[in-house]
Design a protein around this nucleic acid. Structure first.
Lengths: 195, 195
DNA sequence: GCTGTTCTATACCGATCGGTATGGAACGTC
DNA sequence: GACGTTCCATACCGATCGGTATAGAACAGC
């Protein structure tokens, strides 16, 4: 029933995702989106609702397609491997030649006007979810004797994620993968009992 | 000669600095600025040139008034104290109740449109200057036997600055000073010979 | 008090922002 | 082949973007 759409909604969403990733939420205009996706404004609004809904769809796709390593890393047998895989997983995602540099969440949510507060809040919530999951994984490691009992799992998780957010800034400003790898090696030296 | 201006240019610049710090370069509109500074558009343009020049003036003031600790830290006698002072200095600046949260350079330069490319580039250059200065300080420390000779000063400097950029993201998303202090303590454990 | 200069207030500029109304083109169904 | 439905193209909407022209108000020097 009805005329079929002339574009692939999945391809279009992928393009929107990459644009938001590269230029942020407010830095990407509707014209940027329609030009990049190769569709017209009514098609965009008809298919994706509005700019904010499109961004949320892109964010969800981003998490499923590029942040899957994080949840996978939590299944590593020991806490040190979890931390390593998280750090290197972020480093890889942020410096892949086939992706924009840096992190979608950070590029999109920093320094935006009041109009983007809802989007900003959502991204901070997502970060909090990741922090809580990593904290729980480290709590388990401590119960299992995998981490010293004087370690605070919440602080350790925040440290790992903070380094990853820092590498996102580095990557966004053009620092390459090899440099970031070496930096992550140094970060891992802070691991309990490393030296 | 001529009518004297009815506002204090220094106060106005300070207000602009705080607005840019809080909402970024593109996230802060001219109306935000004039409203906050309590002046009209012609006064703003007459005094500061245009938005970009005003931002550059605010950035310079920011570095002089809020980033002075960094250059001071380089004068510490040993490399470990340098690193500690840099990390805690950033943490303090990013989480002071009297300032906006986070870092002006990061809030302003992440995820902006092509229109802000020149500003973005300037901020990245400033970061590079800081990285080079810290690298040279660590090179000196290595020569002085203050750091092991198998340490790469450039990578170590990048690690310290990356953690600080990560804490800027944390602070901007509402994480408090005490949490960031504890995270910095963990980061310092990666220091050569700490454990 | 006049003049020249500098500031401020208002109103305005074209461009772009996110979003939509309208009309015609392309389909599946009957 | 007419019909209802869906999609696309164009043109448009009010609001806001960064920036400015114009005109009057407030001063210093003479």
């Amino acid at each position: 029933m009805g005329r079929p759409r002339e574009f692939d909604a999945d391809d279009a969403l992928q393009t929107a995702l990459e644009l938001f990733w590269r230029k942020g939420y407010e830095g990407t205009s509707i014209t940027d989106l329609t030009d990049g996706m190769g569709i017209t404004k009514p098609s965009l609004y008809g298919t994706f609702g509005n700019k904010e809904e499109l961004f949320r769809a892109a964010l969800e796709r981003y998490e499923q397609n590029y942040m899957a390593f994080f949840w996978k890393a939590l299944e590593e047998p020991d806490a040190r491997s979890v931390a390593r895989n998280v750090l290197y997983g972020f480093a890889d995602a942020q410096t892949c030649d086939c992706n924009p540099s840096g992190c979608l969440g950070i590029n999109a949510a920093m320094g935006c006007s009041e109009a983007a507060e809802a989007v900003q809040k959502t991204i901070i919530e997502r970060r909090t979810i990741g922090h809580k999951a990593l904290t729980r994984r480290f709590e388990r490691a401590r119960r299992e004797g995998d981490l010293p009992s004087d370690i605070n799992p919440e602080d350790l998780a925040r440290y790992i994620l903070t380094v990853s957010q820092g590498t996102a800034v580095q990557a966004a400003s053009g620092v390459g993968r090899e440099e970031i790898y070496r930096l992550v090696d140094i970060a891992m030296r802070s691991w309990p009992g490393s030296n």
